[in-house]
Write a protein that binds this DNA or RNA. Structure first.
Lengths: 240, 240
DNA sequence: CGTATATTTGATATCAATCAATACTCGTGG
DNA sequence: CCACGAGTATTGATTGATATCAAATATACG
């Protein structure tokens, strides 16, 4: 028996958990087969209806941001979910407020956790994909911790661009011509910086010829190896 | 078929993944039944032998720290694992170097991933516990992200103490009389601060009568509600 | 008990935040 | 199609929290 529903877990504070699933096309099509499609307008908060069964969303297009909020109102975007990623909505312990909001118009498949569990039991490969994805997500989260803990502003922005570049490549989109639908403020929030600092980092990368910025939401990576060097923690750029 | 082995995952960079499992005594005893016990001396690096099967460790006592390292040598402790937690050792993609080191002498159960998977297939409750634990771990990681991204030095230290307090309580140890076996330097590393800043935060908490510090590695929480207030993001302490 | 190490306390430097102003985008209506 | 305006992004000047540098004190272990 495969179960997606978290068992009682004292450490588990979140009412929603998004994960960058990398399930693969086969798994996604499997889930799509038993789910109803859903269109979520930009800026809509994705809330679970009271009494509705716990459910999972699999994104087909668009971007969802997942935020945590502290008691005093400070909040942070902890993840951006894109095509192929999964959002699981379940009961939390009420300690932390977790919100998911559509950053763009979103197409998604919605499936109840009960149905998803049943499908996983019938399809071992799916169960394996899911668990593998969740384990990998812990690795990704550790890299995010590393980024916030050890990287400086321009390194964080470089890491962010590379992460999006790789995720784009994985779903077949061009690796070096990115569309970043979120605002500078949202990027800053995710990277734990201010819009001003993110903007300065972009300007610096542009001045160095590493990226081009035809429009604020379009990024063209010109020198991916230098971007990787910066993201990985090489010497940081100076303005001169 | 339940599989612990992550499938191919482009986003998965880690060669080791530790998670604060909260599996519960029943699950731990189940695993202990099929595993060999292991004693790991303080400061020993936990490395997978070449050619040895991929394995998981379940801690029975002691503390293991899990660190990530960037190309330029900067590193960070991303987790401390204590009694009941699980360390999964598997192949990474080589992008990030992940190390696990015993911070104290450690007693652990070691089981190959193959055996663990077999046991999970025979025991659905275990499979459920494992997956629930991994999902919850993502929630914990998001809180860690929040801590690094939004909390100030004294708030981070307060959060750290509360986290250890809750984990101690969960395994039956006293909630308000903590033994912190790791050094100030290790705490600072995990919280992305310096030893000096951690030390100042401890001194501040002591001056406010919130904790007592009979010995550097012993912390007595005197006013847990104020500690929670600080950790959750209340007004920060001033020296006056 | 003495020495090496860990921790605490103090003074200054630095990166990013904040405060402030300008420039750009994009949608709307003339 | 162009002009306008509201929101978004960029650039500049100053402040602040924590790092860094430096020293003193406490702890632990032989």
């Amino acid at each position: 028996m495969f179960r997606v529903t978290p068992a009682t877990c004292a450490g588990c504070a979140a009412g929603k958990i998004g994960f960058c699933a990398n399930l693969g096309d086969t798994a996604i099509e499997l889930i799509a087969g038993i789910s109803r499609t859903l269109r979520i307008g930009k800026s809509r908060i994705i809330a679970r209806e009271e009494q509705a069964p716990m459910s999972a969303l699999v994104l087909r297009s668009g971007v969802i941001k997942v935020s945590h909020t502290l008691f005093d109102g400070r909040q942070q975007i902890v993840d951006f979910l894109t095509t192929g990623d999964v959002l699981i909505q379940h009961e939390g312990n009420g300690k932390v407020s977790v919100t998911a909001e559509a950053t763009t118009d979103v197409d998604a498949c919605e499936v109840s956790l009960a149905d998803l569990e049943a499908l996983c039991n019938d399809t071992p490969e799916l169960a394996q994909s899911m668990l593998g994805a969740v384990l990998c997500e812990i690795g990704r989260k550790n890299q995010q911790v590393m980024m916030l803990g050890r990287k400086r502003a321009d390194e964080r922005v470089a890491s962010f661009l590379l992460d999006f570049s790789e995720r784009a490549a994985r779903r077949g989109a061009p690796r070096e011509r990115l569309n970043l639908p979120m605002s500078r403020a949202e990027i800053a929030d995710y990277l734990s910086l201010t819009t001003e600092t993110v903007s300065r980092a972009f300007s610096l990368l542009r001045a160095e010829g590493i990226v081009r910025l035809p429009k604020p939401h379009q990024v063209e990576i010109c020198d991916i190896s230098r971007l990787q060097e910066i993201a990985g923690g090489g010497a940081h750029l100076s303005v001169r």
